[in-house]
Design a protein around this nucleic acid. Structure first.
Lengths: 152, 152
DNA sequence: TCCGTCACTGCAACCGGATTGCAAAGTGAC
DNA sequence: GTCACTTTGCAATCCGGTTGCAGTGACGGA
């Protein structure tokens, strides 16, 4: 275990550890650090970006950690069209996050950044009989305000 | 084209070659074959699946062909969460396909198939000022009728 | 008709994100 | 402490996507 991991548990952000336990996840150092980082960030990140942020942690550990967090619905993942999957913390109050509470995302084709449009929730459609909805990905592609302004 | 009557798309319809020309694409053998195949298929396919279908064609040719078709809006692409991009022919009447005319997709996490829900159009949301919409990906994940029935 | 140019295609190599096998390190129960 | 199980790091691998390059073909002009 590297130095970054050797933090004082009592000093650690208790709520992160609590969040993990609330989702039924055994709180290990790696899981706390990953969830901590995701809770700090205001935009969705790829595994590669997390690798950069958490320099001492191996990418396979990050990969498996993200999967554990996903399985227990502590985080969400989605594809924005950039080619790599993006992850973001689930900010739902309850441990189960309902589809209609999730917000949409915007991917800027110019600057390649992904934005959370927190104010806009995913419109939920009615599907033909038999389809069971687990999740919905609503991602808009285009130009972000910064880039559309620069082009105008 | 001698009379304005022949500009009527529904009448000019017919050949794949015509479709290519309508989109301003020089109709080569590869392009005809790819578009032909996409028009036959009733579900979106990945590049790899196309590679299997069109055994004699090199994947780089398929790749570049798909890009040409995409640029000229003869086909659409989207990510369903399977990890690979899916392609489908654009069945719009006009050469420009408006966002609100596009249908949603369903990805079954059990059988890994992707379905077009032709009857359900993408709900278009209002974005904050400055965002310019180019396209929208609305993909639902869950269980398809076949798989949800089998599980029930 | 021949020639030059440019678009198109196939092959092979490459890239990068995602994933896995395995061994070492850590953790909890006893 | 010991044992069983979980977690982590390292290295290798997989695979979809992408590119460089050379060969082929289509087309227009001399």
């Amino acid at each position: 275990m590297h130095s970054e991991f050797e933090f004082n548990r009592t000093m650690a952000n208790g709520t992160i550890e609590q969040q993990l336990q609330d989702h039924g996840i055994h709180p290990t150092a790696a899981r706390i650090l990953v969830l901590q980082k995701l809770s700090e960030l205001t935009h969705p990140v790829s595994m590669t970006e997390l690798e950069t942020e958490l320099e001492t942690m191996d990418k396979s550990t990050i990969f498996r950690t993200l999967n554990v967090l996903l399985e227990h619905h502590a985080i969400h993942s989605f594809e924005d069209g950039s080619g790599s999957v993006k992850y973001e913390i689930c900010r739902c109050e309850s441990t189960v996050c309902r589809v209609e509470n999730r917000h949409i995302h915007f991917y800027c084709e110019e600057c390649n950044r992904t934005f959370c449009i927190d104010d806009v929730k995913i419109p939920v459609v009615e599907l033909p009989d038999g389809y069971e909805i687990e999740s919905i990905n609503y991602t808009v592609k285009g130009l972000c305000p910064e880039c559309s302004g620069r082009k105008a």
